[in-house]
Amino acid sequence: MAYEAFELTVKDHVAHLALNRPGKLNTMIPAFWTEIVEIFKTLEQDPTVRAAVISSTGRHFTAGMDLSVFTSLVPATGDQGRLREQLRRIVLTIQECFNVIEKARFPVLAAIQGGCIGGGVDMVTACDMRYCSADAFFQVAEINIGMTADVGTLQRLPHVLPSGMVRELAYTGRRLSARQALAFGLVNEVFETHDALVDGVLAIAAEIAGHSPLAVAGTKEMLNYARDHSVSDSLNYIATWNAAMFIGNDMAEAFAAKAAKRPPVYEDLQPVTGRLFG
């Protein structure tokens, strides 16, 4: 399927989503928001997908929300209470466009070059890991246009960066360089060039895809749960999870492969069809 804002490929258990509007700085046009949900729904239905990479094209990863999206959100005339309730629902729907990244049962890795601005920060903070090129910078730019960021940055970034740094970025709208992003832990690694970045991140995704997809899905579930719950609650959850998941075949395959000195071969997860029956 052809997309307006993305190019999607799936190879060797790794999905690769590339923002493909470099001439427009990969701004997040209306099609972006519908397509990203459609893509992740499609990937969830593909049992061969075990990891995903989001990269981009051109000079900047993304310049953030396109102005056409802002203008389309202006409520029509009418009762203000009802219009504000409608606007709240719209914002929640937009938030879900990045929640799908976090909810995906496979890890999602971001490969960032140039500017990652505004909505770009919302998107990459929903990813499991972030990597960037040496020319990258990150900017919580909403404060510069007189608004409070509302699609995930202020909720997820405090789990990645120190509180004081998050507040400085959010209050000032200044840029965080690739070097600073690495020092503060926003990114795992800085690559010298864009090509090296994409190749390197795809290689990391391939390494993840070589492990048990059931174990990887469980690990992501537990890490996300632990972020939002107490240690006690999280330990209780993993005990229940593994009481069910230990019955799978993957541990036996891992031990057999190690004994035979061969790569393990794991069965794909079942597709998520979205249907209750059939």
Rank of each mutant, 00 (worst) to 15 (best):
E4G: 06
W241F: 13
F61Q: 03
A215G: 02
M1E: 09
I247R: 14
T34F: 11
I29H: 14
G115A: 08
I208Y: 13
A209N: 10
V160Y: 00
D233I: 00
N242P: 00
R275Y: 09
E267C: 02
N236Y: 06
Y3R: 12
M129E: 14
K41F: 04
E102I: 00
E7W: 03
V272R: 14
C97K: 03
A110M: 09
G185N: 14
E168P: 00
V49L: 14
G64Y: 03
N249Y: 06
G58R: 12
S68C: 00
P47V: 08
L161S: 03
E96F: 09
N188I: 04
G64R: 01
P47R: 13
D46L: 09
V201Q: 05
V108L: 02
G114Q: 02
T172D: 01
V100Q: 06
A18R: 15
L73C: 13
T153I: 00
A254M: 08
I208R: 06
V166K: 06
V231R: 07
R82M: 12
G23I: 06
E102W: 01
N224I: 07
F137S: 10
G146R: 02
E38S: 12
A206T: 14
Y225D: 09
V166G: 03
A209L: 14
L83N: 08
T219P: 00
L92H: 03
A206R: 15
V91N: 06
H13M: 07
A244C: 05
V69G: 07
L67Q: 10
A254G: 00
G200K: 12
L182V: 03
L169N: 04
F137D: 05
G152S: 03
V160P: 00
L92Q: 12
G164W: 10
F191E: 08
Y225E: 06
R89C: 04
E221P: 00
E221W: 05
C127R: 03
C116Q: 04
S56T: 10
T273A: 10
E7N: 14
G185D: 11
Q113R: 14
R175Q: 10
L8D: 05
C116K: 02
T71D: 08
A141I: 01
C97W: 02
F6M: 11
M245I: 09
L186K: 09
M123D: 05
E253Y: 07
G152I: 02
Y266P: 01
K261C: 01
G23P: 05
D199T: 15
A254L: 12
G152C: 01
A31N: 14
E44C: 04
R50V: 11
V216P: 05
W241S: 11
D79H: 11
R227N: 04
T125F: 02
A2I: 11
V10K: 07
V216L: 13
R156C: 03
N242D: 10
V53L: 09
A205E: 10
A205H: 11
I145Q: 01
P213F: 08
A206G: 13
E207I: 15
G118N: 15
V231I: 10
H16I: 14
M129S: 09
G210M: 08
L154W: 06
D79E: 14
E4P: 00
L67V: 08
T219G: 04
D250R: 01
